[in-house]
């Protein structure tokens, strides 16, 4: 009855992960890099849920729960770092942050 192959979800997840990598590579705004990391985490979650459904295993969904908790912690810390960076350097563009260069 369910005629959607697992590979459709995996391909979607791979494309979303690639878009996230693209964002991290080409953008210079730290907040957008941060959002791209969230896109990558979400694409991995999609893989976990798809595998969990197709293999009839609950562990994938439990893992998604933990990934979400860690992502929430990461977002709090990351945004605090961005705020501290903005206070110190008045910028959030990653190519203007070169504290270790000189």
């Amino acid at each position: 009855m369910n005629l959607i192959p697992l590979e459709l979800y995996l391909a979607l997840s791979a494309i979303l992960f690639a878009i996230g990598v693209l964002g991290v590579i080409i953008r210079r705004n730290a907040i957008i890099i941060f959002m791209s990391i969230e896109i990558m985490l979400n694409s991995v979650n999609l893989s976990f849920v798809a595998f969990s459904r197709y293999m009839s295993d609950q562990t994938g969904q439990i893992f998604v729960f933990f990934v979400m908790a860690v992502a929430a912690a990461e977002s709090a810390i990351g945004l605090a770092i961005i705020l501290a960076l903005f206070r110190k350097k008045q910028t959030i563009y990653v190519d203007e942050v070169n504290l270790l260069k000189d």
């Binding site: 192959p5 391909a11 791979a14 494309i15 690639a18």
Partner: peptide, 21 residues
Amino acid sequence: LIAVFIIMLSTYLFSGSFVYA
């Protein structure tokens, strides 16, 4: 980099038989 990544993954994903729920 993204093009290479997607081509690699798609050749891997669509090479075998499909899995259904």
